[in-house]
Design a protein around this nucleic acid. Sequence first.
DNA 1: TTGAAAGCGGTACCAT
DNA 2: ATGGTACCGCTTTCAA
Lengths: 328, 328
Amino acid sequence: MATIKDVAGAAGVSVATVSRVLNDNGYVHEDTRTKVMLAMEKLNYYPNEVARSLYKRESRLVGLLLPDITNPFFPQLARGAEDELQREGYRLMIGNSDEELEKELDYLQTFKQNQVAGILAATNYPDLPEYSGSLYPVVFLDRAKEGAPSVFSDGRAGGKRAAEEMLRGKSTSITLVKGPGRLPTAQERFNGARDVLQKAGAQFNVISAASFSIKDAAILAKELFAAFPETDGVIASNDIAAAAVLHEALRLGKKVPKEIQIIGYDDIPQSSLLFPSLSTIRQPAYEMGKRAAGLLLQLIKKEPPKETSIQMPVTYMERQTTRKDEYK
Amino acid sequence: MATIKDVAGAAGVSVATVSRVLNDNGYVHEDTRTKVMLAMEKLNYYPNEVARSLYKRESRLVGLLLPDITNPFFPQLARGAEDELQREGYRLMIGNSDEELEKELDYLQTFKQNQVAGILAATNYPDLPEYSGSLYPVVFLDRAKEGAPSVFSDGRAGGKRAAEEMLRGKSTSITLVKGPGRLPTAQERFNGARDVLQKAGAQFNVISAASFSIKDAAILAKELFAAFPETDGVIASNDIAAAAVLHEALRLGKKVPKEIQIIGYDDIPQSSLLFPSLSTIRQPAYEMGKRAAGLLLQLIKKEPPKETSIQMPVTYMERQTTRKDEYK
DNA sequence: TTGAAAGCGGTACCAT
DNA sequence: ATGGTACCGCTTTCAA
């Protein structure tokens, strides 16, 4: 591995000069520049990022904190962020918290120790002091924090929309799946849906999900139909839960959407492959990751961002688990 | 951010001593150790990984190169790797190649520039010179390379097993989905299945998938039934393709598995939520990630690994898209 | 326009 | 048992 010294030696100049052509700043004579470039080429030189980071007290790494990359919603966020960051030469250090405070703190610690340029955090603990220091900028992802840079979608509106569509399809005995209580995003969409249902004077039941895992989703689906067998409409807390409910409904021989409507949340890629394909509230996950990374990049470069709190629109994907007009 | 100097000052010792207690090597008097520890605590000191990496010429980062984290097979690999590496204090730098050589080289370059301790690579180009240097150890993931450390599963056996089960369920007009030609893993499982079918003298057709993306899977499924309407058994190249085929089969009003059997590959988490739940060949993705990381860790620590080429077993998950005995 | 040298925050060798 | 210091590879004054 060639170092800047080797290049300097080969080109017959000082390391300072090499550094100058490397960073394209300061005065460098055209001839020397050429000499240096040639030397770099010959030695197949590329600068050591670690040394650079040490001096600058900032690396070109961005910490990405996620609950669990295994949940299909998050890989898209991650890809969006990665693709955006990549354009400016930043890379991702990734950490899965499993929603556990301890793991989260552990990752935040290593992010800091690695002098990350910034952090993208899908966290349940945005009020941690670790997020308020001025060491590195932080953008909250999939989570709004008052007064802090964040990118999120309107969970309340999404929940409302789901309930409205359910009503439009004339379900009369609705079961609302409430996501894990500790997750603000899950609460918002739940509240939105509940409010619409209540205002409409609709009859509905509530069942709570222990987590967003597939295993718990399957259990939940069975419990749902055991507790509320008359259910003819389900507003799920996310697409995984919806898939589990759909599975169970079909297993019980129910016709979807004729006898029971199901609406999911997130619009993970696989939702359209279910049969019937899943009607759901779409969060633009990839775009959210991108926007968050874009915001973070501005913060890193100390450019004043136009907007610091970005709310992304949520859309209703009408597919085949809800009733179309011909049914109504 | 406190530095080692600050700690030394506060404790009234030299930086050398602080370094000794930090790394727990060399002689340190019990009393001084306590003094230093107290000072570290008081200053909330934690060592700068970047400085450490620079001196050691090696960071505690591991590069993870993946085709696309958005494909549900890979997050599990990543999690397995992360969980294993974490135990030894290593972190993940992640890169998605989209199977593009240029992106792959770009990531390998930054991995090197960041002085990663090692690389975990799910690559189609294991013969790149970047993988043969002795700068950092490399473990190939989901890919076997002769004589090089690798963790993979037996694609051939998996393909064979799928075909055998298909035959056992008495499908007589089988369509074999061939994954993207450029992917060795896809070829292996295809070859395995094809060989069994040929040896059995079974009648079968082949259709090729352009990619592993959901979009292409949906297109493929339509083409499949258009080209081979008599198909009564499909061996898919992976679970996404299988889900698409299942979707299309149901849409066409076919009874599964009565009229058509479908077998997937991978056993991604969502497969059991499909309806009917998908019979598939399971690759232990999480475990593969874990094992690969474990191997890499040994290589990093220069411990002689017992085995350098780890083949993981593949298992048949009999679920509901294949015929059980009662049907036969 | 260029070079010398002082850091960045650690580690490890050599003295003492 | 402890301290001084060179060094890891780069950037950035400051002088020349």
